[in-house]
Measured scan of single mutants.
Amino acid sequence: TTLHFDLDGKKLQYTGVSEEIARLVEELKRRGVDLKEIVRILEELLK
């Protein structure tokens, strides 16, 4: 799965993300978590 974000005018793309992580990101968005925080979490998970 590939995730795309537009953060402060920067286009971020994460490829090869598992379905689980993609679902987690969608859930965080639904809960109103700040996009910067979501990206920070995502980068930690993908290390």
Results as ranks from 00 to 15, higher is better:
1 T>N: 13
1 T>E: 13
1 T>H: 15
1 T>G: 13
2 T>L: 04
2 T>P: 02
2 T>F: 03
2 T>D: 15
2 T>G: 04
2 T>W: 02
3 L>V: 08
3 L>W: 00
3 L>G: 01
3 L>F: 02
3 L>M: 04
3 L>C: 04
3 L>H: 03
3 L>T: 01
4 H>Y: 15
4 H>V: 12
4 H>A: 06
4 H>N: 11
4 H>W: 11
4 H>T: 13
4 H>M: 09
4 H>F: 14
5 F>K: 01
5 F>P: 01
5 F>D: 02
5 F>C: 02
5 F>T: 01
5 F>Q: 01
5 F>L: 05
6 D>F: 09
6 D>Q: 05
6 D>H: 15
6 D>C: 07
6 D>R: 00
6 D>E: 15
6 D>Y: 12
6 D>K: 01
7 L>R: 00
7 L>Y: 07
7 L>M: 10
7 L>G: 01
7 L>W: 05
8 D>Y: 02
8 D>V: 02
8 D>A: 04
8 D>S: 03
8 D>I: 01
9 G>D: 06
9 G>S: 03
9 G>E: 04
9 G>V: 01
10 K>E: 14
10 K>W: 04
11 K>N: 09
11 K>C: 10
11 K>L: 04
11 K>Y: 08
12 L>M: 07
12 L>R: 04
12 L>H: 07
12 L>G: 02
12 L>N: 02
13 Q>W: 10
13 Q>T: 15
13 Q>L: 11
13 Q>V: 15
13 Q>C: 08
13 Q>N: 08
14 Y>I: 04
14 Y>H: 01
14 Y>N: 00
14 Y>R: 00
14 Y>G: 01
14 Y>K: 01
14 Y>F: 14
14 Y>Q: 00
14 Y>E: 00
15 T>P: 10
15 T>I: 12
15 T>W: 05
15 T>Y: 08
15 T>L: 07
15 T>C: 07
15 T>N: 11
15 T>E: 15
16 G>A: 05
16 G>K: 04
16 G>C: 06
16 G>T: 03
16 G>M: 05
16 G>R: 04
17 V>E: 01
17 V>K: 00
17 V>A: 02
17 V>G: 01
17 V>M: 03
18 S>D: 06
18 S>N: 08
18 S>Q: 05
18 S>E: 05
18 S>L: 04
18 S>I: 05
18 S>M: 04
18 S>R: 05
18 S>V: 06
18 S>K: 06
19 E>Y: 08
19 E>K: 08
19 E>W: 09
19 E>A: 11
19 E>R: 05
19 E>N: 08
19 E>F: 10
20 E>P: 12
20 E>I: 05
20 E>V: 06
20 E>C: 06
20 E>Q: 09
20 E>G: 08
20 E>K: 07
20 E>D: 13
20 E>F: 04
21 I>T: 11
21 I>G: 06
21 I>Y: 06
21 I>S: 06
21 I>C: 04
21 I>R: 02
21 I>E: 04
22 A>E: 08
22 A>L: 12
22 A>Y: 10
22 A>Q: 08
22 A>I: 11
22 A>N: 06
22 A>W: 07
23 R>P: 02
23 R>S: 15
23 R>K: 13
23 R>I: 14
24 L>V: 12
24 L>F: 13
24 L>K: 14
24 L>T: 14
24 L>R: 14
24 L>N: 13
25 V>C: 04
25 V>R: 00
25 V>D: 00
25 V>G: 02
25 V>P: 01
25 V>T: 04
25 V>I: 09
25 V>S: 03
25 V>K: 00
25 V>Y: 03
26 E>I: 08
26 E>P: 03
26 E>L: 11
26 E>F: 08
26 E>T: 09
26 E>C: 09
26 E>H: 13
27 E>L: 07
27 E>Q: 11
27 E>N: 09
27 E>H: 12
27 E>V: 09
27 E>R: 06
27 E>D: 15
27 E>P: 02
28 L>A: 08
28 L>S: 06
28 L>Y: 10
28 L>W: 08
28 L>F: 08
28 L>K: 09
28 L>G: 04
28 L>H: 12
28 L>Q: 09
28 L>C: 03
29 K>R: 12
29 K>E: 09
29 K>Q: 12
29 K>Y: 11
29 K>G: 11
30 R>N: 15
30 R>V: 15
30 R>A: 15
30 R>M: 14
31 R>K: 13
31 R>N: 15
31 R>M: 13
31 R>Y: 07
32 G>F: 07
32 G>N: 15
32 G>Q: 14
32 G>Y: 07
33 V>E: 13
33 V>K: 07
33 V>H: 06
33 V>N: 06
33 V>A: 08
34 D>V: 11
34 D>G: 08
34 D>Q: 11
34 D>C: 13
34 D>M: 10
34 D>Y: 06
34 D>R: 07
34 D>N: 12
35 L>P: 12
35 L>G: 08
35 L>H: 10
35 L>F: 05
35 L>D: 12
35 L>I: 14
36 K>Q: 13
36 K>T: 13
36 K>F: 11
36 K>H: 14
36 K>M: 08
36 K>G: 10
36 K>W: 12
37 E>V: 09
37 E>Y: 06
37 E>R: 07
38 I>T: 05
38 I>M: 04
38 I>P: 00
38 I>E: 00
38 I>R: 03
39 V>N: 01
39 V>M: 04
39 V>E: 00
39 V>Q: 03
39 V>A: 03
40 R>Y: 09
40 R>D: 11
40 R>F: 12
40 R>N: 13
40 R>L: 10
40 R>I: 09
40 R>G: 13
40 R>T: 14
41 I>E: 10
41 I>D: 04
41 I>F: 08
41 I>V: 13
41 I>H: 08
42 L>H: 00
42 L>V: 07
42 L>W: 00
42 L>F: 04
43 E>G: 05
43 E>V: 06
43 E>D: 15
43 E>W: 02
43 E>M: 04
43 E>P: 02
43 E>R: 03
43 E>T: 06
44 E>W: 09
44 E>P: 04
44 E>D: 13
44 E>H: 13
44 E>I: 12
44 E>A: 12
44 E>L: 10
44 E>F: 09
44 E>M: 11
45 L>A: 15
45 L>C: 05
45 L>D: 05
45 L>P: 03
45 L>N: 10
45 L>T: 12
45 L>H: 11
45 L>F: 06
46 L>H: 05
46 L>F: 05
46 L>K: 03
46 L>G: 03
46 L>S: 03
46 L>P: 03
47 K>W: 10
47 K>I: 11
47 K>N: 14
47 K>Q: 14
47 K>M: 12
